[in-house]
């Protein structure tokens, strides 16, 4: 009995290895996706090479999204929104989508409230990042994670 269970577990292990190899092989052609490095590069490209401060930006996302094709997101930045202290731009960045940059919003002090909501595509479970550029030029960063059960498909 004991030998039998050992055998099955061995068989299962080799099957799992095969499966993992198969998965890796199929995943390869999809490596067009962005990664964390691309996300950092996208932020630098939009805002220039400035330090990112943690805070003042909140990203609201559902904890689980059943359909990655349309996920509701709200990005808010803490700001007085007065003529000399306001949020100039807000960018939404994905570390896993084919293109890291999702959207860039330009706000004016006229907005009254630095908050934007939209719906984005998510090519898999990831931590979506948002960067706000204040009128004094400082950059602030926030993020939120969503588990995506059905990714916005790259194939069809």
């Amino acid at each position: 009995m004991k030998t039998l269970s050992r055998q099955t577990s061995f068989a299962r292990r080799s099957f799992l290895q095969l499966g993992a190899a198969g998965l890796a092989a199929t995943a390869l052609p999809l490596r067009a996706a962005a990664d964390a490095v691309d996300a950092d590069a996208a932020i630098r490209e939009i805002f220039g090479d400035k330090p990112l401060n943690e805070g003042r930006v909140t990203v609201k996302l559902p904890p689980i999204a059943e359909n990655g094709n349309s996920v509701a997101i709200t990005v808010a930045a803490e700001s007085l929104m007065s003529p000399d202290d306001y949020v100039r731009r807000i960018a939404i960045i994905s570390p896993r989508n084919p293109i890291a940059e999702v959207a860039v919003f330009k706000l004016s002090p006229h907005a009254g409230k630095a908050e934007v909501s939209t719906r984005i595509r998510m090519a898999g479970t990831q931590r979506i990042r948002a960067v706000a550029e204040m009128s004094d030029g400082t950059l602030w960063h926030g993020s939120a994670s969503t588990v995506v059960t059905l990714a916005a498909c790259l194939i069809g």
């Binding site: 996920v71 939404i92 994905s94 999702v102 959207a103 919003f105 330009k106 939209t118």
Partner: peptide
């Protein structure tokens, strides 16, 4: 208000 959109927008 202005927005630059990429394919990541639904």
């Amino acid at each position: 208000f202005e927005a630059d959109l990429r394919p990541g927008i639904a």
